[in-house]
Design a protein around this nucleic acid. Structure first.
Length: 512
RNA sequence: GGCCCGUUCGUCUAGCGGUUAGGACACCGCCCUCUCAAGGCGGAGAUCACGGGUUCGAAUCCCGUACGGGCUACCA
């Protein structure tokens, strides 16, 4: 493989200096309005690679399409990255001596680089119109293998071409693929040796008629000027790599190391899209996933530490991530496993941590307020372990604890019929009410003691009694542990609900 | 069409010439148990896409085929 030194003469490539053995990677999303989960994984790989090697992680916004580059679209990307804790060393809202970090603000840079390529003959003007090209393309395709632009304008002699350009004739600038080049090859850090026939690379457009750069051109100019040492990206860019290598060489810049990550697919094996569920990182946040869980899960998608270890913290990842353990086949997002992992992280939060995470959800649901929660703090800390053990996602918390915050509960008629309307259940509710009313202190241990005495007293199965009380008090057949729940609810509400459960049945189905 | 990439339990993966093909999620059963979870124990689940080679020996190396994916734009 030819490196810069052996490449075309640079003429005046002074700005394209060699990177000095420093590890420097970049994540360069286009501002689509959200951070896609697949992109997040690319960002994570770059972040971890940089951390592992003590290198620099650059965030660059590849917004060659100014339409999309709104403040909101950009900040959505930044929010997503920050939520995951992927801090960048250089880029928007960070320091960096290589900015600006928005392609829309680097127009002059691309034109300047083009001068280098004009001077060393690696770029030439093309006057073909889009319509002409389309005709040519169709003709070539129906005939067989299409091999890109037919290089018509490359044959125009330089003086003539320069004159036409000077005369203001509309034109684009194309890369001149070296005629003597047989192949373009490189060693991918993940997939090994890659080789492409040079004639599979066409003289693609570098700069459009309107003077704006194309992606494959702009990104190379930026990677070169920002001294990126390793380009870690999705394998949808694998086929673009030979094109980009040729531009690096034309600019007289060393070619970075490439690493192409496999893509993430939906459950049906197709490219991930909306119908597969959440695709944006913020959607995962809104569904109650913890950033540390998403991060851990994402890291394991296409990468493994040893094939055994699954729970890996960000810190541990930063110490152990390596490209040679990235697999090269695409991975399907398994929401079940993500849910499981999220549950593990939730359980590891501890009471304090869990309260901190669930509080915004409670407030959002209108169950409490910031002010109230201060006073409720000890109560919330008691509640935390009862709930954290039973949820996989934070969005499950509100439905599970709602009964604790309401004045009364609604009971589904079918559930009521099944658990509360039998005579035994009615007797149990009444007996439980009496026993609980008589307790000197309304705490879990005495509550449990009182209720456990009931089965023998009444000659009824414990499960029937507990289930009746549970439904009466929580409104559902599934709830956090009963005795603890009653303490958290408090005597007053508990007794009121037991009364209502008895009365409710009487109203609905008066006994003879 | 052309050029590239990929293919180990349903899913994520370990494996890098000799293993009873290992682990995790999901699934099933048992235990624990006031429901649901969590936890513990056990189980089922992969002719390593297929066909040829190379080799004493192949999931591992080579070549084909099939299937999936990407690129092939004055999109990124």
């Amino acid at each position: 493989m030819r490196l810069a030194g052996a490449g075309p003469a640079t003429g005046r490539g002074g700005r394209f200096r060699r990177h000095r053995g420093m590890t420097k990677v970049r994540f360069a999303p286009s501002p689509t309005g959200h951070l896609h989960i697949g992109n997040a994984r690319v960002a994570l790989a770059n972040f971890l690679f940089a951390r592992r090697l003590g290198g620099t992680f650059v965030l660059r916004i590849d917004d060659t399409d100014p339409e999309r580059s709104t403040d909101e679209n950009v900040s959505a990307i930044l929010r997503g990255l920050r939520w995951l804790g992927l801090d960048w060393d250089e880029g928007p809202e960070a320091d960096g001596a290589f900015g600006p970090y928005f392609q829309t603000q680097r127009a002059d840079t691309y034109l300047e680089a083009l001068e280098t390529m004009k001077a060393n003959g690696t770029a030439y003007p093309c006057f073909c119109t889009s319509e002409q090209l389309e005709v040519k393309r169709d003709a070539a395709r129906t005939k067989g293998g299409y091999a890109g632009y037919d290089r018509t304008c490359r044959a125009i002699d330089p003086q003539t071409a320069a004159a036409r350009v000077a005369a203001g004739e509309p034109h684009v600038w194309r890369l001149s693929v070296p005629a003597d080049r047989a192949e373009v090859a490189f060693d991918d850090a993940i997939r090994g040796h890659m080789s492409f026939p040079a004639d599979a690379v066409d003289d693609f457009v570098l700069v459009r008629t309107d003077g704006t750069p194309t992606y494959n051109y702009a990104t190379v100019v930026d990677d070169a000027l920002m001294e990126i040492s390793h380009i870690i990206r999705g394998d949808d860019h694998l086929s673009n790599t030979p094109r980009q290598i040729l531009v690096f060489e034309a600019l007289g810049h060393p070619v970075p190391v490439f690493a192409h990550l496999p893509m993430i697919l939906g459950a049906d094996g197709k490219r991930l899209s909306k119908r597969h569920g959440a695709t944006s990182v913020e959607a995962y946040r809104d569904e109650g996933y913890l950033p540390e869980a998403v991060l851990n899960y994402l890291a394991l998608l296409g990468w493994s530490l040893d094939g055994e270890t699954t729970m890996i913290s960000r810190e541990m990842l930063s110490e152990s991530f390596s490209l040679d353990r990235v697999s090269s086949n695409p991975a399907i997002l398994d929401m079940d496993k993500l849910d499981w992992m999220n549950g593990v992280y939730i359980r590891e939060l501890g009471a304090e941590g869990f309260v901190a995470r669930m509080l915004p959800w409670l407030i959002d649901a209108g169950l409490t307020t910031v002010e109230q929660s201060e006073a409720q703090r000890p109560w919330l800390l008691t509640l935390a372990p009862l709930v954290s053990e039973r949820v996989k996602r934070l969005d499950e918390v509100v439905p599970m604890v709602r009964f604790l915050f309401m004045d009364s509960v609604d009971i589904d008629p079918a559930v009521r019929a099944k658990t509360l309307e039998s005579e035994a259940a009615q007797a149990a509710v009444v007996a439980a009410r009496q026993a609980l009313a008589a307790l000197p202190v309304f705490e879990t241990a005495p509550i449990e003691e009182a209720l456990r005495a009931l089965p023998e007293q009444l000659g009824v199965k414990a499960k029937l009694i507990f289930q009746a009380v549970r439904v009466a008090v929580t409104g559902t057949t599934v709830s956090p542990p009963l005795f603890e729940s009653l303490e958290l609810l408090g005597r007053e509400k508990t007794l009121a609900r037991l009364d209502a459960a008895a009365a409710g049945v009487d109203d609905a189905a008066p006994r003879p």
